Simulated scan of single mutants.
Amino acid sequence: MYHKEKSIQIKNSASALYNNLGVLRIAPRRLTYFTVVHANVVNMVSASWDGLNYSHRQLQSKEPNVATSTSLITQAAFCALPSRDLLVVTSQKGIQMYESDGSIMVYWHALDTPETTTAQAVFARGISAVCESYICVGLSTGAILVFDVPSKGSNITLSDVMEGHKESITDMASECCGGEVCIADLVSADDGGNLCVWQSGEEFKLLNHIPGFDISCSSVKLWKGTVVAGYGTGQIRLYEAVTGILHAEVNAHARWIYSLDIAPFSGLVSCINRIHFLSLLLSAAEDSLVRVWHLTMTPESHSVEIAHLYNECVTDTQICGAKFCDGDGYAFAVTGYDLSEIIRYTQS
């Protein structure tokens, strides 16, 4: 179904972090941006669609105007809002927001550090764009910061702090409803496997809390009102977001899942006067496997089914990031711990 393309070389190897790959497709310029975190550096590559031209950039996590104050980066992710795209970088010191090409830092938010030494580390992790103008970022305290982002410029403001988790945030995901009113459009996960489902707006509302099993939920997605969650057990669980009803549970991997991604525009089909929404799900784990799954939803019954489609083994590699490169799932990319390359696959 997929075949391996020429890899993209990066300046440094990938750190063993959840969701350690960012992808942004720039259709008007026929470019794709990739980001991979190594220690206190974000390696950024701009690649042409024909695979002939590349440019590299490195971003460091440091306080503005403090040249020597660097810290370990925990995540780098692209946030695509209707009016602009931003690259958000989280670390032990704060949150940085850049223009999508990494050329200009437009905002810096410093984290509150305790005056006395505590056992708990302080960091930010979990990044998601929400609705028209919000970017949400999780903290090690379990809080979630909501930033209001203007259509241009650097006048970004902290508009809300959401409290729903008691453990460190691991990941967040949102779903754009295309102008329709969404009951639930944001989900957050934490180190205890707990999920919180939110409704965005001028005031974000906590709609549902789905309890965990003391096993970290390392990656989470939201699709058609369904939460797709990957766990340290190697399992994938599908929940109805608003009610918390478990649709499916799959023993997807033999080891810790590090990354999930969804290609939302895979299509829809009509069968016996019923419309079925189709999507592709990508999962990647420490067991060196990347797997592609078929998600099917019947809107009338709100039932969701998952079926396995494809395996790819990246031999002797602890996979730490996997992303589709486009909305229809035609291609995907993979990173691995201590690998200085981004491995790409396209449909045959």
Rank of each mutant, 00 (worst) to 15 (best):
S7A: 14
Q9N: 08
S13D: 11
A16C: 08
G22D: 09
V23P: 09
A27F: 03
P28K: 12
R30G: 00
F34G: 03
T35G: 06
N40F: 06
N40Q: 12
V42C: 06
D50H: 07
G51M: 05
L52K: 14
N53A: 09
H56K: 05
L59Y: 03
Q60K: 13
K62D: 02
E63C: 02
N65M: 09
A67Q: 11
T70A: 01
S71L: 00
L81E: 03
P82H: 11
P82L: 10
S83R: 13
K93R: 09
K93E: 10
G94N: 09
I95Y: 02
M97Y: 05
Y98N: 01
S100V: 00
S100D: 04
S103M: 11
S103L: 12
M105P: 01
L111K: 04
D112C: 01
T113V: 13
T113Y: 05
P114Y: 08
A121L: 12
A121R: 07
V122D: 03
F123C: 03
F123Y: 15
A124C: 10
R125A: 13
S133Y: 10
S140V: 06
V146I: 14
F147L: 07
D148K: 14
K152T: 11
N155C: 06
I156D: 02
I156M: 04
L158E: 12
S159H: 03
D160I: 00
K166E: 11
E167C: 06
S168K: 13
I169Q: 04
M172I: 09
C176I: 00
G179S: 10
V181T: 12
D191C: 10
D191V: 05
G192D: 15
W198C: 07
W198Q: 02
S200V: 06
G201M: 08
F204E: 02
L207A: 00
D214V: 00
S216K: 09
S216A: 14
V220T: 13
K221R: 15
K224I: 00
V228K: 03
V228Y: 06
A229D: 06
G230W: 04
Q235N: 13
I236E: 01
R237D: 08
A241F: 05
T243K: 09
G244E: 08
A248Q: 15
N251M: 05
H253C: 03
R255F: 09
R255P: 00
W256H: 11
I257W: 05
S259N: 08
D261I: 07
A263K: 13
F265T: 06
L268F: 14
V269I: 15
S270F: 14
N273G: 10
F277Y: 15
L278T: 09
L280V: 02
L282G: 11
L282M: 11
A284D: 04
A284H: 07
S288V: 03
M297Y: 01
T298Y: 01
E300W: 02
E300N: 10
H302W: 03
A307Q: 14
C313Q: 14
Q318R: 15
K323S: 14
F324E: 05
G329F: 13
G329S: 07
Y330V: 06
A333Q: 08
V334A: 10
T335P: 07
S340H: 13
I342E: 08
I343L: 12
Y345K: 02
T346R: 15
S348Q: 11
S348E: 12
